[in-house]
Nucleic acid binder design. Structure first.
Lengths: 216, 216
DNA sequence: GTCTATAGCGTGATAGAC
DNA sequence: GTCTATCACGCTATAGAC
């Protein structure tokens, strides 16, 4: 029909995004993407010469929508920055329950599935993680004065991310939020203790010898 | 040759285990397992009627070898129970560096890959996680008197597991231990603070409303 | 830009002799 | 228990008309 719009492309990205989220990248076949999107083979390969190109487009979509889909949705109405952090984690908890543990963190799942392959996709996964950490880091920076002096807000944000990803993994395995909640509770307990220390103590900072920059 | 030994079976399990570890379950083909093990198709299907049966055998192998391969190796010589916990985490760090981030936690990777399929395998993944948590829980129980009264050692062990799994995920993505180290440092800082509290304070326990048992 | 038809290969699994 | 040969299907990707 030679339409000027990129509707077809968008439909493919959205369909692939959802299928990769539910099934993973490798188990999702092109045929299934075509069927569920209602697009024909020729059109798909016009926009995406290879399956990996489609994956890249999906990861670019996540990169470009982390704000509205994640941050704004679960942190937007919250005022206290620390509560924003845990509101974000609660958003993931809601995702788990809403889809009965069939959907987890789409980035985390792809990160492990593609850890030894698809370098182009991997660098976009890295970008997505960086954005996430950036966001949480900013939340902590907003309460930096309440944290112990010398606290590395970025390292703390990283710790929130690792806790979230590990907690999602266990929740999906156990089909239960019990372990997720236990881990997040300990994380909150830790953050609370840092803030309590912040008003009295001096500094739990990163020990010397651990570089601040990444070597990749 | 009709040998009484189960050498062939063992070789298949070991080969599959290593390939699943490096590549994941789905991307690893039967043909590759046959080639690398030097076993023929007929023999494989004699022992394992389906590919999933082989996966189950691999997960049973992990279940039966967590002691010697993981705990004894990285915690055996350590006396202090808390140091045993972080010795275990350091074992994973060594694994990352030894294989240049190509190998992570084999159970965690499979947990996400198979999260919505292969229920038989999933329940064995759950068993493996339980064993891991059991082990770390025992370490904390050994120093229970130094922890704040009412501390749930199992929930704390779960938090160690989630931190480890999330940290491994980031390490493999970034091809760097920086984030891994930052997260583990925060975990250690937390555990240290609990022990410091244990000698003076009263109790950071799980809040009411979070069940202790799992509902799966 | 979209359509249909299909190539070419890799997959998990099977058959049947030994 | 092990061997070789092979089936039937699904996969990613392509060809070429419109």
């Amino acid at each position: 029909m030679t339409r000027p719009s990129t509707e077809t492309r968008s439909k493919l990205v959205e369909t692939a995004r959802d299928l990769f989220h539910r099934q993973g990248y490798t188990p999702t076949g092109i045929a299934q993407i075509l069927k569920e999107s209602g697009v024909n083979s020729g059109s798909l390969y016009y926009y995406f010469p290879t399956k990996e190109d489609l994956l890249v487009a999906v990861l670019e979509w996540y990169r470009d929508h982390i704000g509205d889909n994640l941050i704004d949705l679960h942190c937007g109405r919250i005022e206290d920055p620390v509560e924003k952090v845990f509101g974000l984690l609660d958003g993931y908890r809601q995702l788990l329950m809403m889809f009965e543990f069939e959907l987890g963190c789409p980035i985390g799942a792809l990160a492990l599935e593609l850890a030894n392959s698809h370098p182009a996709a991997r660098s976009l996964i890295l970008v997505n993680f960086e954005q996430w950490v950036d966001t949480v880091e900013q939340f902590f920076r907003a309460v930096e004065d309440r944290l112990p002096e010398g606290t590395d807000c970025r390292a703390l944000a990283v710790h929130v991310l690792t806790t979230m990803e590990g907690s999602m993994m266990l929740a999906r395995t156990y089909r239960s939020t019990t372990y997720f909640d236990q881990s997040v509770t300990h994380l909150r307990n830790y953050v609370d203790s840092l803030i309590a220390q912040g008003s009295t103590w001096s500094a739990p900072k990163q020990p010397a010898g651990i570089p601040e920059s990444l070597d990749n």
